[in-house]
Nucleic acid binder design. Structure first.
Lengths: 344, 344
DNA sequence: CTGAAAGCGCTTACAG
DNA sequence: CTGAAAGCGCTTACAG
């Protein structure tokens, strides 16, 4: 029942392992191996249902045809949607995917990177946590194909795929204001991450445009760890300090979800009372808040773009002809627009 | 900048690769290697930040310390929650996880199984699609450590972790009836999968208990592929045939989500009009349908149990002492109860 | 046209 | 107490 290897086939056909390897690699012609022999090999391989051992192949080549994906949380709807898109895109270039969850823990993330490297993955895709810059810089130094997404560090010379954080936020908040909201709360998290900073900037820009003063009491920064408790506490504070708050902008769907649960109990008439806007949409948002405006994450495009970038770097580094791109030229930074869905 | 290998360390210390390997494997004492040498090796390894090449290790051992997980869909909230639980549990036995999505396509699933095998994973965890029995039987024959979950085949001698499908459904529907519903629609999918069959049985059992005749017009079987369209069509039919339907039972959250979107448009007063029950809960259900009763999937326990079973099989098969368990003795079938949340 | 051989990095009987 | 050597399954210069 053992594994079918090149050796199995070679012995069966009384030829060398090398020849079998060449033919199965599709290089039979280049090596001018007789069509007859090629035929025999191909036939035998498929009849025995030969599957190359990827471990051995990767070990010889120095790299496997697997990419690694590190997410802050697998069970988040945005990240898992990206995972799916990435997997489908990798499929088309015959790459497998190893998905890992950092659980937003720097230490875990570090371990995951090490693990992926020890499996000699062809490249790494990561939505990084806070302090991971050192590790990332290391990867870049080793010219490991790398693509960041969602989150990024402006001073890190890496490829990344982002959404137009500031612009989308601006459009959403601008709309809330035009619809009459004047005291719009901004719920956000992970303030040390640049993309959240940009979203907040977009919020402030919209206020400025309408000459509304920024009220710090309306900003709710919720720590990511334990945000399930943090959101209600923050909302309590906001309602206490600004009882006539009339709008809410959420920098992330997870904050909106917690808020809706809070609203259900404390402000069941929230749909009439507040203007709402959110980055990313959950399927049931329309039921819960028919008027909420959202920035739709271009998930499929994000996945596609990530894989395109990674493929380019991998090709440059691993293909026999290619020369690894220097850090600078391999940098490829993509900012994708969100579709803004205005409701009401 | 190259990889640090055993050779690097051995040359540095002027000893053999073998000795380094033994010590780093923690078998220094057994081999009676002098404490001094051990010390030197350990120190050198950690100072050089040595990481064993998992590819090479797996190739020599014949098996890698990675498990494979095949899900019908990564982006489904239940499956991604299980993925997370499995990953965390595997962590504790120093296993990595390779997550793949079959997208409910048999062909893709088959490919994924082949891929995982070609990476010599230690074991495979799978929520199988319809026809995968042949592939699964193959895995069992090869005594590949295997655990099914969520879905299963009663005549397949495999380990699995399930929920108490029939019982939980019975409890939910029984409750809907006791609360006054008499014409309860049952929305279901994937009828060829046994777990869905069991849920339907639970539904029928509850009706029988209350001497309510089963009305086929109230059963809505929605094809899994394209269920986003299938659900509204099925609901149209049900409302047409049984205009006074007064309750809905959903065998899966994805059906409930689609239905709520339909209700929003066609029956905005659904919360007053219908009794509702569902297997699995989404975070926002309470906002959309405050009275919906649900069976909570014991996700963490499912993940833990899966890994326990897999670990047992892997230990038996791969540990030097162990003898692979015969198919029968390795079978380990776990049915976990759901917590029923009754609302209203 | 085809094969022998080295090497990827590791583990582990075998030998001393 | 430690090392030389074979082997996992593959790829690929090198040789003929």
């Amino acid at each position: 029942m053992g594994q079918i290897t090149l050796k199995t086939i070679a012995e069966r056909l009384n030829i060398s392992i090398a020849t079998v390897s060449w033919v199965l690699a599709g290089k039979g012609k280049d090596r001018k191996i007789s069509p007859a022999t090629q035929e025999r090999i191909l036939l035998c391989a498929s009849s025995m249902n030969y599957q190359p051992n990827m471990l051995a192949r990767a070990l010889t080549r120095g790299v496997s045809s697997t990419a690694g994906l590190i997410l802050p949380s697998i069970s988040d709807s945005f990240y898992s949607a990206v995972a799916k898109a990435v997997e489908l895109a990798l499929d088309r270039i015959d790459y497998s995917l190893m998905i890992c969850s950092s659980e937003s823990e720097t230490l875990r993330e570090k371990r995951m990177i090490g693990m992926l490297k020890s499996y000699q993955v062809g490249g790494i895709i990561i939505a990084p946590t806070e302090i991971s810059k050192i590790e990332l810089r290391q990867l870049i130094n080793e010219s490991c194909p790398l693509v960041l997404f969602d989150r990024f560090f402006p001073d890190l010379p890496a490829s990344y795929v982002l959404i137009d954080n500031e612009e989308s936020t601006f459009k959403l908040v601008d709309y809330l204001i035009r619809k009459g909201a004047r005291r719009i709360a901004c719920l956000t998290t992970n303030p040390h991450l640049h993309h959240m900073d940009l979203r907040r900037k977009g919020y402030e820009k919209a206020l400025k445009k309408h000459r509304i003063e920024i009220n710090p009491a309306l900003i709710g920064e919720v720590a990511f760890h334990g945000y399930e408790k943090g959101v209600p506490a923050t909302l309590d504070r906001i309602f206490h300090q600004v009882p006539d708050v009339d709008g809410f902008f959420f920098t992330s769907h997870i904050l909106a979800i917690e808020t809706f649960q809070y609203f259900r109990i404390h402000h069941p008439d929230y749909n009439r009372k507040f203007r709402l806007g959110c980055i990313h949409e959950e399927p049931l948002f329309q039921n819960i808040a028919p008027h909420i405006s959202v920035a739709m994450m271009p998930v499929a495009k994000i996945g596609k773009r990530i894989v395109d970038m990674l493929a380019e770097q991998m090709k440059a580094k691993y293909s026999p002809a290619g020369t690894p791109l220097a850090a600078k030229e391999s940098m490829n930074q993509s900012v994708l627009p969100c579709k803004i869905i205005i409701r009401d």
